[in-house]
Design a protein around this nucleic acid. Structure first.
Length: 276
DNA sequence: AACGACGTCAACCGCTAGTGC
DNA sequence: GGCACTAGCGGTTGACGTCGT
C-alpha cells in the first residue's frame, strides 16, 4: 500500500509554518462555497500555496465551525483519562467521544497535563481514595466556575452515538447573525476590551451558526440566499481578526470608528471577490 | 532587564487503512 | 490480486510564551 507513491505535494512549492489570516479566510470561504470533497486539489482551487494535508489539518483542528476553543473542563479531562484507559493512544477514537475536541488537541492535553497528573498521582500512592476525593473536589470547584458554560451537553454521549448526534450536540450553541452582532457589542464593553483573543470562540460559534451547511452541499442554495449575511460575517470576522492582530485598545477603538487600514481593505476586497 | 529552562500547542511527517480501477 | 491514490491517524518537532533566577 502506498509503496513508492508520489509525495502528496511538491514541498518546494508549498508554504509551510503558521497560517496567516489571509490563508484562513481563503480556506474558510472556499470550503463554505464548495465543501471539501478533495483535499489534494483544494489548495490549488482555493488559491492556497499549501499542501492538501496541511489544509485538512488546519480545517479540522482550527477552522472547522464545530471546533470548541478554550480550556478543557474537568469533566472533559476526566473523560479523556477514562477513555485513554480503554482505548490507549487512539486519539481519534477518544476525540469522537468529545464533540468539538480534536484528536490533536486531546493528544496535546494528554501529554502536557493529564499524563503528568496521573503519574504524580501514582507516585503519591499514599491513599488512593483520599487522592480521588481531592481530585473530585477540584473538579467540582471547576465545574461551578464560569468556564463550565463552555462544557458541552453531550459529555455522557454513549458509544452508540453517531456523527449526526454528535453534530446535533455540538450545534446546540448555534448563533444567528444578530446574536453575533450582539456579541460584538458585548466585546465593545470596556470591561471586555482586554479580552482580545477570548472573542475567538465566539467567532467560531458564529461560523458554526451561520454555516451548518459547511459539509452539506445540498444546502448551498439556501446559503446563496444568505449571501448578504455571509458578507457581513466576513466583514465582522476580518474586523475581529484585526483586533487580534493589533492588540492595543487604541487600535480597537479605531476599528469601532470604522476606520480600516490599507491591508484590511485589500483583504476585504479579495474576500468579497471570493464570495461573489 | 536579561537570560535560560520549561511548558504549550499548532503544524509537520511518515505511515496505514480504505477505496476505486 | 495488485496498483495508485486519498483520507486519516499518531508520533514528533519547533516556535512561541511564561516563569524563575
Amino acid at each position: 500500500m502506498g509503496k513508492g507513491r508520489a509525495p502528496c505535494c511538491d514541498k518546494s512549492k508549498v508554504k509551510r509554518g503558521p497560517w496567516s489570516q489571509d490563508e484562513d479566510f481563503k480556506l474558510i470561504s472556499f470550503i463554505h462555497k464548495y465543501g471539501h470533497e478533495n483535499w489534494r486539489s483544494l489548495p490549488k482551487q482555493a488559491g492556497l500555496l499549501r499542501c492538501g494535508k496541511s489544509c485538512r489539518l488546519r480545517w479540522i483542528n482550527y477552522l472547522r465551525p464545530d471546533v470548541k476553543r478554550g480550556n478543557f473542563t474537568a469533566e472533559e479531562e476526566e473523560t479523556i483519562i477514562k477513555l485513554h484507559q480503554s482505548f490507549g493512544n487512539k486519539w481519534s477514537k477518544i476525540a469522537s467521544k468529545l464533540p468539538g475536541r480534536t484528536d490533536n488537541e486531546i493528544k496535546n492535553v494528554w501529554h502536557t497535563h493529564l499524563k503528568k497528573r496521573l503519574s504524580s498521582k501514582t507516585n503519591l500512592n499514599v491513599d488512593e481514595a483520599a487522592s480521588k476525593g481531592s481530585l473530585n473536589e477540584e473538579e467540582n470547584s471547576q465545574e461551578s466556575s464560569p468556564n463550565a458554560s463552555m462544557s458541552f451537553a453531550g459529555s455522557n454521549i454513549s458509544s452508540k452515538d453517531d456523527d449526526a448526534q454528535i453534530s446535533q450536540k455540538t450545534f446546540e450553541h448555534i448563533l444567528t447573525f444578530s446574536d453575533f452582532t450582539e456579541m460584538l457589542q458585548e466585546v465593545d464593553k470596556p470591561e471586555l476590551l482586554e479580552m482580545t483573543f477570548d472573542i475567538d470562540p465566539d467567532i467560531w460559534s458564529f461560523i458554526d451558526g451561520s454555516d451548518s451547511s459547511f459539509q452539506q452541499p445540498e444546502n448551498r442554495a439556501l446559503q446563496e440566499s444568505e449571501e448578504d449575511e455571509v458578507d457581513k460575517w466576513f466583514k465582522h470576522l476580518e474586523c475581529e481578526l484585526g483586533l487580534e492582530e493589533n492588540d492595543n485598545q487604541q487600535q480597537q477603538q479605531q476599528h469601532k470608528q470604522g476606520t480600516e487600514d490599507e491591508n484590511s481593505s485589500s483583504l476585504l476586497e479579495s474576500y468579497e471577490l471570493l464570495i461573489h
